[in-house]
């Protein structure tokens, strides 16, 4: 399984792997927002954390459709399906590798993009922390969509349509925790722990459902 993690990581980071593209997309989304809402720094500081979160959410979904597709196209998926090691574990490791290659860079980039949005230091730390624990949930729930859409021609679009509604709780608790860190009466720890709980929940549900979908779409 360690070998699988390293291999998937390598494939994502190499040219054509799409890890860099995710960050560029994230940057583009954040860069577009001030043009839409205007250069008012106070306004940007207020809505900034939310937009960083939304940008990260969309960027995470961007490359997810390839999660299983590349292995299906060259026949690797067949061999993975045949092994005695549980498929759920294989899926989980692939998700972790995908997150490390595409999600983690987004998390690391988020404070820098926060600078563009005039976000305060505390808020930046909060955005970083919430994305760190929350973005794996998006990859894990997205894996279900990726597995379902693995054999479909426009799988990427379908994946986003299926996964976005399910990722609303992640967004809610992520942004709420950030707001909790900035604005005094609102709590930070409570939504933060909720976020952790959701990630752990999806760490079980996502691979289970994705493995079932991969088995169902083998032909």
């Amino acid at each position: 399984m360690g070998a699988l993690f390293v291999r998937d990581l390598k494939l994502s980071l190499r040219a054509g792997g799409g890890a860099l593209l995710g960050i560029l997309f994230f940057l583009a989304v954040i860069a577009v927002i001030p043009f839409g809402v205007g250069p008012d720094l106070n306004l940007l500081a207020r809505i900034g954390p939310a937009f960083v979160w939304i940008g990260a959410l969309l960027a995470s979904l961007l490359g997810l459709d390839r999660l299983f597709q590349i292995d299906r196209e060259d026949g690797s998926l067949d061999i993975m399906l045949m092994q005695s090691s549980p498929l759920v574990l294989t899926v989980l490791v692939k998700c972790l590798a995908h997150w490390t290659a595409t999600g983690l860079p987004l998390v690391i980039a988020s404070p820098f993009l926060g600078l563009f949005m005039n976000i305060s230091g505390v808020a930046m730390a909060a955005v970083f922390a919430t994305l760190l624990v929350g973005s794996p949930a998006i990859t894990l729930i997205g894996a279900v969509g990726a597995a379902v859409a693995v054999a479909l021609p426009r799988g990427g679009l379908l994946l986003a349509v299926l996964v976005l509604p399910l990722s609303i709780p992640v967004l809610i608790f992520g942004v709420s925790a950030v707001n909790g860190a900035i604005a005094e009466p609102a709590p930070f720890l409570q939504p933060f722990l909720m976020l952790v709980a959701i990630t752990l929940f999806f760490a079980v549900l996502g691979p289970l459902a994705a493995a079932a979908a991969l088995r169902a779409s083998s032909d």
């Binding site: 399984m1 360690g2 070998a3 699988l4 390293v6 291999r7 390598k10 494939l11 190499r14 040219a15 054509g16 792997g17 590349i70 196209e73 060259d74 026949g75 690797s76 067949d78 061999i79 993975m80 045949m82 092994q83």
Partner: peptide, 26 residues
């Protein structure tokens, strides 16, 4: 072992990387 029509090898990785991956994974 299943050797189907497709080779189950990654074009972007070297032969050694491909084969040692399968050796470890399987």
């Amino acid at each position: 072992h299943y050797l189907g029509h497709r080779n189950a090898m990654k074009h972007d990785m070297s032969v050694r990387e491909n084969l040692t991956f399968w050796q470890q994974f399987m």
